[in-house]
Design a protein around this nucleic acid. Structure first.
Lengths: 189, 189
DNA sequence: AGATGACCGAATTGGTTTTCTGGTCATTTC
DNA sequence: GAAATGACCAGAAAACCAATTCGGTCATCT
């Protein structure tokens, strides 16, 4: 089988299971059944290998988000579904969850960077949906970059941070209703 | 002069200058010109002393925020001014800034707790303004707790986090306009 | 020519010793 | 004799250092 693919899969498994820092190149080599040096014929170094894998993860995430988008449904419903899906992915997907933890606990620079990139991907995904809906005339003309950023940060705050300072967490319906009557309401023409 | 006051002032200076962890009780005693044991006749322990000081800081912050509130001006203008003032306070006030740094760098539990308390104070401040404006009929009936939380998190995101991932920071006017046409717009009756 | 793993210097870890610090309390002070 | 004090203690943190680990290279092997 394709040696590069073997290495990618081995690395994915190891990064997902142990995180970036705790994964060693030798371990990846062992899982992939190749010599350590072989890895370096396909990937410049550990960080580049990691970036490649995160790139793949981002694609996966975007795919899942795309899958919940429906034609002929309001922007709000689609944006809500997509954001919820991606934030669920953030907690569910082994690698993404590991990266989030690692950034909190160790602040590995490579991990921080990949986390930023992933968040940027989410924001960009939403931005594109906004642009499309603005073009269709469903939304008024807004700075889609800023709105996408606001939506991401707001959802993240209510889904991730709310529980830190409050006892009963908010249900998805409560969140959906709240954003409907605040941010989304303000975007309509 | 009042010994308790001397101690409070010495502790405030030391916490502001070196942070919670790096401030020792002996150092406070030395600055206050009292024996170390004397501190413990007024304050149960280091953490309680710290809490007392943060309580004072929160009052100071609320006072500054209150000072920018004007009667007969729209909710949006007042909320914006108050939030900006408090977030400026967060970066400018020696002690608050030190606490924020320390929480990032060392995660001292006592510091984390006080940071939460301070943020909660900001949210509550805004919540009360919302409630007042709802009562006056200037805003429609909303869940003021959620709206206050959203406003705080959103302002924090655009003022603190935006620059981390973007090159040119947003001007205050841009931020004000953006929130006017999104969140604030949705709160009007 | 492509794969490999022994090898290297730098970084990390783990264990040990030393120093520091929050808090107490017997003694001193006024 | 009530309030203040600083020597003192135990546990936590820091400093230190030896031993190990790891990313990356390259001479050798297939």
């Amino acid at each position: 089988m394709d040696r590069k693919q073997e290495i990618l899969e081995a690395a994915t498994r190891s990064f997902s299971l142990f995180g970036y820092k705790a994964t060693t190149m030798e371990q990846i080599a062992k899982i992939a059944n190749v010599g350590k040096g072989t890895i370096y014929t396909f990937f410049e170094n550990k960080e580049v290998l990691f970036q490649e894998i995160v790139r793949g993860m981002i694609c996966e995430m975007k795919q899942e988000a795309t899958n919940v988008i429906q034609e002929g449904v309001s922007f709000q419903e689609n944006a809500h579904a997509a954001l919820m899906k991606m934030l669920e992915f953030r907690e569910t997907h082994q690698l993404y969850a590991k990266i989030v933890d690692e950034e909190k606990d160790w602040r590995t620079p490579a991990v921080k960077q990949m986390l930023h990139q992933t968040e940027q991907a989410i924001v960009t995904f939403i931005k594109e949906k906004i642009d499309k809906c603005v073009a269709k005339g469903e939304l008024r003309q807004v700075n889609s970059e800023l709105v996408a950023y606001l939506l991401f940060k707001a959802y993240l705050a209510f889904i991730n941070d709310w529980n830190v300072t409050h006892d009963e967490s908010l249900s998805e319906v409560e969140i959906a209703n709240f954003f409907q009557e605040t941010i989304f309401r303000s975007l309509l023409v």
